[in-house]
Design a protein around this nucleic acid. Structure first.
Lengths: 345, 345
DNA sequence: ATGAAAGCGCTAACAG
DNA sequence: CTGTTAGCGCTTTCAT
């Protein structure tokens, strides 16, 4: 007989699964057990201790589903990861994963659990409403706007406890936390140009709104300084990226002398392909990345990049969400990017 | 008036929040609404369509908490990440995050949601029982045994739907999926020795059971071949690791000519420190890693490493868990490691 | 300080 | 094919 069982008066083995079971053994009412286990100060200390002892002895845990149903609160924050374009990779993308790690730390500290949901909007129009309306989460953090900006806007009008990681647009209605991508793009271009670059290639997918903003910033600076700039569409999935970049390099060799990669992941792959072609960085070709992932300081040569403060981002997401949960209609939070100068530009 | 509202006979605005509300509008019973929305074939097509139309019009979603409580199923798999030693890093460790990404993909495909819980066993004795007994998850995947092997064993005796990522010990009772770490360690040492190494240093924390197994495998081979091997304790947190490794390198310079890093993360940092000291890899010092993360092919020079098949691991975890959910007491799954020869050894 | 009772919103067995 | 009914296990008035 396991120690989570007990016998009733007829001698049958009975498992303690509910408050009522426990109440019967303790000789009190279910209400009292509920109060005792919740640490309600109204219960007699003796009674509470007795109840706690029995609960421990039988390994009893109140059913959270029932509790949540009754209290209309779940203690769970939903994390939605929309996989708009580039469906394969997104969720194992280093940047998103790092952000998720920090979110988990922050939310756990505040006593919330995380419910992770990977959504493919193209296959499920209703993804966001479903997640929110399910009654399974108290609030939602959306990681990345992908190509769902409009849908998020619509939902935001009727649902307060939602915060989104992504790009900030003038006049948008949903609460967003993110880096000033446009400014980041400017910093990157300025650095390249200051290093003597005369023609820039942007490696990335400008369909993604954040990347588009990074490019726009770079373009603004380049045009002002009379430097040419072009987009070389590049995906994030690591299998295809290598080849894609190799092809781009072949195409631009000798013409372009500066590369602005939309993410460090792209930059790192790019650096490797460049090495294989025997091109010297930074002498012949200068490279700037975006993100400042942990790997970026470990490349050869170490990568010059635009840093996003991921920890601050996670903290911001959680703080704003908690304030919204409390009924506060918070403003968006746009974080400043920082140029980290290493050796590639 | 938002389109999710309607008016009752007295003209007051009424939001449709429950099956009963919807039933009243549709002029049927709640039971019928429940069946219709569940796609139960017993309902008249006309009735179903009408109910679906009303539901859509009012943006109605059944409350999952209530549904789950009633059905005693949650559709959620709990993912527990015990942070035993090295509390800071684990959840943003590249390997675990990549595994988590694959798990999310697999589970989503099978129709499950993921509930992520970061646990610090030292602060919470009861972490696993709490997670399981909470009634919030149908089953649990534990990512990493950390120093919790015994506790996991105890729980496994009374709880079937649990699968653990980690190391397999002869005769253990919990169902585990993982790489054959010992064999992996052997492969690494064999490679180093075949490359001419005469003295090996293992960089890693042998308190972690998986790392201990990797070291044990390497040691076995080294001793058989008459090669000396030592452990240089190294943490995973990126801030401290750099310095720690730099110190180790200073200490062993000229004595040790082969490094076996417990993880690629350590290996990558190590490579960087080596480069900064002006030591030539692989001529003066050979390095083998473990994991084969995406970065590992991008380092300079590209890292020779022991590959863990993360995708297969995630698939295995999910398959076994689903079988256990169906009542099957499955065996553990030990995956073979593969030596990936690049340029560091 | 405790008990009794009324649900939270949904589903499923049973009865038509 | 549909309505009725009885809970799932817990929390929280309202009494006492």
């Amino acid at each position: 007989m396991a120690d989570t069982d007990s016998k009733d008066r007829a001698g049958r083995v009975t498992k303690v699964r509910t408050l009522a079971d426990l109440a019967k053994i303790a000789g009190v009412s279910p209400g009292t057990v509920s109060r005792a286990l919740a640490g309600n100060s109204l219960v007699n200390t003796k009674t509470r201790e007795k109840i706690e002892a029995i609960a421990r002895e039988h390994g009893f845990r109140p059913n959270q589903m029932a509790s949540k149903l009754r209290r209309q609160k779940t203690g769970v924050i939903g994390i939605a990861i929309p996989l708009g374009h580039d469906v394969r990779q997104k969720i194992s993308d280093a940047f998103f994963m790092t952000l998720l790690g920090h979110l988990a730390a922050e939310l756990t500290e505040k006593g919330y659990d995380l419910m992770l949901r990977r959504v493919i909007p193209a296959q499920d129009e209703d993804w966001l409403d479903r997640f929110i309306g399910s009654g399974m989460v108290d609030g939602v953090i959306v990681i990345g706007q992908s190509d769902q900006f409009e849908r998020i806007e619509e939902v935001a009008d009727g649902y307060l406890p939602m915060v989104v990681w992504g790009n900030h647009q003038e006049g948008q209605r949903h609460c967003v936390v993110g880096t000033n991508n446009r400014l980041g793009g400017k910093l990157a271009a300025e650095r390249l140009i200051a290093s003597g670059v005369k023609e820039i290639a942007f490696l990335g997918d400008t369909q993604a709104i954040e990347f588009a903003a990074r490019f726009a910033g770079a373009k603004e600076v380049a045009e002002k300084m009379g430097v040419r700039i072009r987009v070389l569409p590049t995906h994030l999935s690591p299998e295809r990226t290598g080849e894609e970049i190799a092809e781009h390099l072949r195409e631009i060799e000798g013409k372009v002398d500066g590369i602005f990669a939309a993410t460090d992941t792209i930059a790192v792959t790019c650096l490797k392909e460049i090495r294989e072609r025997g091109i010297d960085v930074p002498r012949q070709l200068k490279v700037v990345g975006f993100d400042d992932l942990p790997i970026s300081s470990q490349t050869a040569p170490p990568l010059t990049t635009v840093r996003q403060d991921i920890a601050a981002g996670a903290k911001g997401l959680v703080d704003l969400l908690l304030r919204r949960l409390a009924g506060d209609d918070t403003e968006s939070l746009v974080l400043p990017p920082h140029l980290i100068i290493r050796e590639t530009a």
